[in-house]
């Protein structure tokens, strides 16, 4: 195994097979190519920088040196609706993995389903991609994670932050190690005990729970109160037109959502 830059090897659980790269187009693309060639669960691609980093729907993800870019291959024997719970597993793993390194008083929150916020700023981007195989089960699922360790992009639609900005004195290797260990812990809990414990831990730090939020759907925006997370992970929203269960959409919390909560349905 070669380790870019630092020469310090992350000490990871035996589950992982680390592939460390100086640069990649996108770690998810590298991991996808490996998964399609049969790479086992636990294959972990880490790049010092990305030249074509991307987020959801092909949005570019700025990927300078100093932040973490990694993707892991998993092969859980489940269908896509259940595998989607890995969104929560991943956010939880990252939040819990770095939380103890933050200064006292820092606030870690999870925004449905997989955004990690520190003191209100988005600190990471998580991109889950899967391939459906025969019998409706997944062939593989990739979890790509970009963590703002040293820097974050300015001028984003919603506030962003970095671990450095939030006061955590961590290197990229520190973050990779903490995240990978924490992910392994929560992934095992999810595989063994189901979504329940993950759901409970996520809800303890849920952003906007019990508050007015907005959910942007492809064709419209819903406003209401974030009431609960159902047993599958869908967001339960109380709107002026009744109870809605949302399985896909973009959530907005905070004053912007509160302003609109009384208007729309």
């Amino acid at each position: 195994m070669s380790v870019p830059g630092s020469g310090v090897a992350p000490r990871l659980p035996g589950f992982y097979s680390l592939i460390a790269l100086e640069a990649a187009g996108s770690t998810n693309d590298e991991a996808r190519a490996l998964a399609e060639r049969g790479a086992p669960a636990g294959t972990l691609v880490w790049a010092k920088r990305q030249t074509a980093g991307r987020g959801r729907r092909g949005r570019p993800w700025e990927s300078p040196i100093g932040n973490l870019y990694c993707s892991v291959v998993l092969r859980p024997p489940v269908g896509p609706a259940v595998a989607a719970q890995l969104s929560f597993v991943t956010a939880l793993a990252l939040g819990e993995g770095v939380r103890e390194s933050l200064p006292p008083g820092s606030v870690v929150r999870y925004k449905w389903p997989n955004d990690v916020l520190i003191d209100g700023g988005k600190v990471a981007g998580i991109l889950l991609e899967s391939q459906i195989g025969e019998k409706g089960l997944l062939e593989w699922v990739l979890i790509g994670t970009g963590v703002n360790v040293a820097s974050f992009p300015p001028g984003t639609e919603r506030p962003a932050t970095s671990l450095s900005r939030a006061g955590a004195n961590l290197s990229v290797v520190d973050v990779l190690t903490a995240y990978a260990r924490s992910f392994w812990t929560w992934f095992v809990v999810w595989e063994r005990d189901g979504f329940g414990p993950v759901r409970e831990a996520w809800l303890r730090r849920a952003a906007g729970l019990g508050e007015a939020i907005e959910v942007r759907l492809p064709d419209r925006t819903l406003s209401g109160t974030f009431d609960a997370l159902d047993a599958s992970g869908s967001l339960v929203l109380l709107t002026s037109h009744g109870r809605r269960t949302v399985s896909a959409g973009e959530v907005f919390v905070g004053p912007r959502a509160a302003r609109h909560a009384m208007g729309n349905g």
Partner: peptide, 12 residues
């Protein structure tokens, strides 16, 4: 593709 809870599934 079908997205559920930010998991983007490639449908073959």
């Amino acid at each position: 593709l079908v997205d559920v809870m930010k998991l983007f599934n490639s449908i073959p």
